[in-house]
Design a protein around this nucleic acid. Structure first.
Length: 257
DNA sequence: ATGGTCGTTGCACGA
């Protein structure tokens, strides 16, 4: 089974590239982030024609997350099960696909450490963890994948000094990743790659992609039962090249059946 | 050393 996650940065603009990529890579499950579409505008029929069932949580203009699946899609959840007020932004969708509890997430950016949005980011991550504690079984098949907007370690950052005092690398954010790991989720990329300077996002500006200035912030976090089935992973940086790319590259994981 | 680009929308802001 092939799983993938991709922050497409506007599915309206990116749909031709997403279609071509699906035809080439043939994932069984694709999680997307930043569709920037309302649910009405989500091109479900296009994906149905390619053999995918779909679920989308969108608000239009900003955010928006989706799951495509060729291996079944049931029990869709779009809000945290903590009994609190629903998130006002569309950043979370979860469904059961092919025997795996799949979540597609778009973690708030945070903007700056002294910005209110950074507190929202930390609260959001706490709510995600609480949701998993309340509704999922870490001994079962669980995958949380998407744009975490956190680089797990300094080797995931092109210039760690540049990010001192900034978001994406701060200790409280990394502590939330550690808390997710303590619950039972593993950063699957690191099971296969020890090297640094492998990134999943590059700023559009200043030729950052071609200069190798990026961050690894798109993660596939998997429970042990899923992780032990993983046989291969790659960040598909080819998808960041060429005409009208997203600023993120997809992450692909292959599981043995 | 600095700033640089996209996508939304509407003449600014988020990433």
């Amino acid at each position: 089974m092939r799983l993938a996650t991709w922050n497409v940065n506007s599915l309206k603009v990116r749909l031709p590239r997403v279609e071509a990529w699906l035809a080439e890579i043939q994932p069984d499950i694709l999680c997307m982030q930043e569709t920037k579409l309302s649910d009405d505008a989500f091109p479900a029929l296009t994906f149905n024609a390619l053999g995918y069932e779909t679920a989308h949580n969108g608000q239009g203009q900003w955010n928006g997350v989706a799951i495509l699946s060729k291996v079944g899609l049931a029990n869709v959840v779009t809000s945290f099960g903590d009994g609190e007020e629903p998130d006002v932004e569309s950043r979370f969708i979860q469904a059961d696909c092919g025997g795996i509890n799949i979540s597609s997430i778009y973690v708030p950016n945070g903007r700056a450490l002294d910005d209110e949005h950074y507190q929202y980011k930390l609260r959001w991550l706490n709510r995600l963890l609480r949701h998993l504690e309340l509704t999922a079984d870490s001994a079962g098949n669980v995958v949380v994948m998407g744009d975490f907007n956190i680089a797990p370690e300094d080797r995931d950052v092109y210039d760690p000094a540049k990010f001192e005092g900034a978001t994406h690398t701060s200790p409280p954010e990394r502590a939330m990743l550690a808390a997710l790991a303590a619950w039972g989720l593993e950063d699957l990329f690191r099971r296969f790659h020890d090297e640094g300077q492998i990134y999943s996002w590059w700023d559009y500006r200043a030729g950052d992609f071609h200069q190798g200035r990026g961050l690894r912030i798109d993660l596939v976090m998997a429970s042990r039962a899923v992780a032990d089935r993983a046989v291969w992973t790659v960040i598909d940086r080819n998808a960041r090249k060429g005409q009208s790319p997203s600023d993120h590259a997809p992450v692909i994981i292959d599981l043995e059946d």
